[in-house]
């Protein structure tokens, strides 16, 4: 499946991905100013930039083929869509126990306590188009692709 991949060598740590992630999941999908100024409680970004010195990258849910979060979920709220491959969390059934956080090998699930406690995570912006974070990365450091940018000898997580 197509996933969002980070190319750390070109991540400039601007965090526009986080900003546009918030926009994508706000009630104002096309207006940053409204999304930030009118929404009183902004949910957290579902992509997180990590930075230390010159190294930085943005990471969000890997939508694992064999997702630990799904298998660990105590309520069955966390699911993998068998058609699209997207791992998603059913808000209504999520009780914010954070078992998925303890299970995710990428640290990609985020506590959302803006209203009811729930686990928040990347939903690939609905999968209809290129996710907002990728579209708005100014330096090509995020790609939406079937192919990962790094070849690694060992398998990663799941």
């Amino acid at each position: 499946m197509k996933r969002v991949y980070a190319k750390e060598e070109y991540c400039i740590g601007c965090r526009l991905c986080e900003i546009y992630c918030i926009l994508s999941h706000s009630e104002y999908k096309n207006d940053l100013i409204k999304a930030f100024k009118k929404s009183l409680q902004r949910p957290p970004a579902r992509i997180q930039v990590e930075e230390e010195g010159a190294l930085s990258f943005a990471l969000q849910c890997r939508h694992c083929d064999e997702a630990y979060c799904v298998k660990s979920c105590i309520t069955g709220a966390m699911q993998k869509d068998p058609e699209t491959g997207v791992v998603f969390n059913e808000k209504e059934r999520c009780v914010g126990c954070w078992t998925c956080i303890a299970a995710c090998p990428y640290g990609a699930i985020i506590k959302d306590e803006t209203s009811k406690k729930i686990a928040s995570k990347c939903d690939l912006c609905g999968q209809n188009e290129t996710p907002y974070c990728v579209q708005n990365c100014p330096n090509g450091a995020l790609i939406f692709s079937e192919e990962p940018p790094y070849k690694t000898s060992v398998k990663g997580g799941e």
């Binding site: 230390e52 694992c64 997580g157």
Partner: peptide, 17 residues
């Protein structure tokens, strides 16, 4: 993941499959 050495970090960055 930033604290990881390159090989493992890359493994994580491309994980999921």
């Amino acid at each position: 993941l930033i604290v990881l050495e390159e090989e493992l970090r890359h493994r994580k960055l491309v994980g999921g499959g």
